[in-house]
Simulated scan of single mutants.
Amino acid sequence: MRFAWAYRDFVLSSILTEQRVRFAGSKLGGLWMLLHPLLEVSMYALILSSLMGSRLKGLSGPFSYAIYLTAGSVAWSLFSEIINRCLGVFTANAHLLKKISFPAMCLPLIISGSALVSNLLLLAAVTVIFGLVGHLPSLKMLVLPLLILATVAFALGLGLILGTLNVFMRDIGQIMPVVLQFAFWFTPIVYTIEVIPEPYRWIYQFNPMFQIVSAYQAVLVFHRMPALPGVLAVLLSGVVLIMLAMLLYRRARPEIVDML
């Protein structure tokens, strides 16, 4: 990752520029980064709170389901944004990749950094909202940096592999949003794991985002330590995927430029 340090100023300035340009001309500006996910959560909460609220063990109150839903959504939004944007990281920047001197591997870092900035602002807003409705933060939130790191590493590694393959098989870019939608419902975000019949719950252990989302919910909702072995397994998987992605890109770079 020496190239990342060598081009750190370029990456940081690109992240800041992207944040400024993203909502240029909008009267609400960066507030849309918070409003979009919060409005989506509000819609789910309005529809499902009466059905799912009573199933939350260890949490009660009129906002219990909304708190549970929001905690999982914060984790998922970071993961899904990185994946979706990495899918087109090379196809959308073909004009830059054809410049030999351009540090192409900085592109996924810019994407991840921009998504991370947006997610941290969302997390800060969510923490304030939780406090206003009486659900105060706890010291367990100190483990959140580890959860965020695991999410970013796994999403970046997987997204970069998919983005590289998408150059050669454009159907990947079309099918992945459908796969992500399926994965969203396969992760206990809008429902609790308790609604799944016990004989089938073991299947969820094979979903890496189950480990991450459950950890976010443990910290933000139930104020307890998450299952760290599962989180560390996702982090390690992310590191391995990043290494594989970089190897795949290096070997495929000449063909990528030709295909673009």
Rank of each mutant, 00 (worst) to 15 (best):
A245F: 04
A245G: 13
L248Q: 11
Q211I: 00
V221H: 05
A227F: 15
P199E: 07
A245P: 02
M246S: 10
V190R: 00
G238L: 09
P229D: 02
R251E: 12
Y200E: 09
L232V: 15
V221L: 05
P188W: 05
E198M: 13
Y200S: 03
L220T: 02
A233K: 13
W185K: 00
V195L: 08
E198A: 15
P199L: 06
I203A: 15
Y204R: 02
T192L: 11
L235H: 04
A252T: 10
F210Y: 14
E194F: 01
M225Q: 05
L236G: 11
A245K: 08
T192D: 11
Q217K: 07
L248A: 11
I196Y: 06
V221Y: 05
Q205C: 06
V195S: 07
P197T: 11
T192I: 08
E194N: 13
L247M: 12
I203W: 12
R224E: 14
V239L: 15
V219Y: 03
L228P: 03
M243H: 12
F184V: 00
L228A: 07
P208Y: 04
S237A: 15
M246T: 13
P208M: 04
F184Q: 04
L220S: 03
R251T: 08
Y216N: 01
M225G: 09
P208V: 02
I196A: 08
S237Q: 03
R201V: 03
G238H: 11
V213H: 02
L244K: 04
L244N: 12
H223N: 14
Q217H: 04
R250D: 14
V221Q: 08
Y200V: 09
V190L: 11
V231Y: 05
F184A: 03
A215S: 11
A218P: 02
I189K: 00
V219E: 05
P226Q: 06
L228K: 00
V240D: 10
L241V: 09
W202L: 12
R250F: 08
M225V: 11
F210Q: 05
F186V: 11
N207C: 03
M243R: 13
Y204K: 02
G230F: 03
R250H: 12
G238A: 06
G238Q: 03
Y204A: 08
V219I: 13
L247V: 09
L232F: 12
V190K: 00
P208S: 09
L232D: 00
I203T: 08
Y216I: 05
I212E: 00
R201P: 07
S214F: 03
V221R: 07
S237R: 06
V219F: 01
L236R: 07
S214P: 00
F206S: 12
P208C: 04
Y191K: 05
W185C: 06
Y216L: 06
P208R: 01
G238D: 13
Y249V: 08
L244S: 10
P208K: 01
A227S: 11
I189W: 03
Y216P: 02
R224I: 12
